[in-house]
Design a protein around this nucleic acid. Structure first.
Lengths: 206, 206
DNA sequence: TTGCCCATGTAATTTGTTACATGATTTA
DNA sequence: TAAATCATGTAACAAATTACATGGGCAA
C-alpha cells in the first residue's frame, strides 16, 4: 500500500485495489479489498498515511489516502539497503495436478494444460495493456522494468506449457525404451516432439 | 499430504516434510512441519488416513500414516475431472523491489538481482538432484514431468534475471533517447546488452 | 427501474507461521 | 560427550480470504 501511494497520492482504497489488480498482481499479489481497507486504517493508526474524507465538492463520499513523511521514511527503510528480499514463492496448481497425474483420467491433463496456456495468453495481454498504460515518462521507469519482466515471464510460462504438453504426449504414446511400436494402433501419431534434449547446460559457475 | 501418501504409504510427518522440501516445494509449496502434523491429525479425524505407532520393533517411536480407501477416493475426486485448477500464484519480492526502484540507492538493485540469480542457480541444482532421485521407474513418470517443468522454469528464471539486469543497466547509463553520450565518463562500458528486442511475438491465436 | 460499478466496511473463518517444549538416537 | 538429526507436538499469533451488509450514482 505504501508503495502504491509513493507513486501517487490521494487514492481511495477502491482505487488501490484496481491498481493492484492491474499491475502489482502480475509479479506479486493483489490483496482482497477488505484487507486493503483494514490495512489503510492500520497504517493511519501508525501515522504512516493520513486520510481525508471528500467533502461535498465530490459527488460521491470517499476517503483519500496520502503517505506521510514518516510513511516515506518507513518505506525507504524497507526498500533501501541490500538486505535479502527472500526467494520468490510459486504455487502452481496445474503442475501439482500433473505431479499427481497417476490419479487422472488419461485425457484430462492435456485439457488442463491447454486451458492454462490459454489463460496465460490472456494474462499476457493484460500485462501488455498495463505496460502500455505506464507510458514513457521517467517516473514509470522501474514499473516498466517490472512489467517488462512480467511480460517475459508470461512468455516463458507459455513455452513451459508447450514443453510439458510434449512431455505428456511422449509419456502417453511411448515411454523411454525407444523400442516399442504400435502401442495402441496409432503410435508415433502425436506431434513430432520438438527436438529438445534434456538441457544439460546449467550456468553453474557460481 | 494425501498426494504424497498416495505415492508411498507408511510415512511419518517428519518424512513427509523432508519429501515436500525436496520436491513439492519447487512448483508448489512446503508447509511448516507443525502444520503437517496438525493436518495429518485432521485427516485422520476425517477418516482419510490412518496411523499406527511403531512398536518396539523400531528403535524410535514414530507414527506412520497410511491413506485409506476413503482418502484415495477423496483425492481422486479432487484430481480427476477437468474442473479448473486455478491460476498459478507468484509472489516475487525481488521484482517488487525493482518496481519500487525509485526508492533504492542506485547500485542496490543490481546486487539484489545478482543474488537472486545465484540463489536460482542453487535451486536449479536442487531440482536436478530431486530429478535424479526420482529414477526411471514408471511410477515416477508424472513427478518426473513436474520436476522437468521445474527445471525449465528455473532456467527461465535465470534468463529473466539476466534480461532484467540488462534493462536496469540500460536505465542507468542511457534512457531511451539514444542521443546521450559519455553520461558519466564510462558510457557504453556495461555488458553489451545481449541483443534482445522487446518481444512482439505473442502466440495469441487463442 | 433494473442492474452495474463505485465505495466502505464488519465478522467469521481459514490458513499458515514462529516460537517454544520435549526427548530419543546417532554421529563426530 | 556434545552437536546434529529424528520425531512430535502445543500455543500464540499473523495474514488473508470469504461472506455479508450497506448505500449512492449512473447508464441501458
Amino acid at each position: 500500500m505504501l508503495g502504491l501511494l509513493s507513486f501517487r497520492d490521494g487514492r481511495t482504497g477502491y482505487d488501490l485495489k484496481k491498481w493492484a489488480d492491474a499491475s502489482l498482481r502480475f509479479f506479486y499479489w493483489s490483496p482482497a479489498i477488505s484487507q486493503i481497507y483494514a490495512e489503510l486504517r492500520r497504517l493511519e493508526e501508525l501515522g504512516l498515511v493520513t486520510s481525508r474524507r471528500s467533502g461535498p465538492e465530490e459527488p460521491r463520499a470517499k476517503r483519500r489516502y496520502t503517505i506521510t513523511a514518516d510513511g516515506r521514511d518507513a518505506l525507504a527503510a524497507w526498500a533501501e539497503g541490500t538486505h535479502d528480499c527472500g526467494p520468490p514463492v510459486l504455487k502452481h496448481p496445474l503442475v501439482l495436478r500433473v505431479w499427481l497425474g497417476h490419479l487422472a483420467v488419461p485425457g484430462t491433463l492435456r485439457t488442463l494444460v491447454e486451458r492454462h496456456r490459454d489463460r496465460t495468453r490472456a494474462a499476457l495481454r493484460d500485462v501488455r495493456e498495463a505496460l502500455a498504460g505506464v507510458g514513457a515518462a521517467p517516473e514509470g521507469d522501474f514499473p516498466r522494468v517490472a512489467l517488462g519482466w512480467s511480460e517475459r515471464q508470461h512468455l516463458a510460462e507459455l513455452e513451459l506449457a508447450e514443453a510439458m504438453l510434449a512431455d505428456l504426449e511422449r509419456l502417453r504414446c511411448g515411454p523411454p525404451d525407444g523400442n516399442r511400436r504400435a502401442l495402441d494402433g496409432r503410435a508415433g501419431a502425436g506431434p513430432p516432439a520438438p527436438r529438445r534434449q534434456h538441457p544439460q547446460d546449467a550456468p553453474t559457475h557460481g
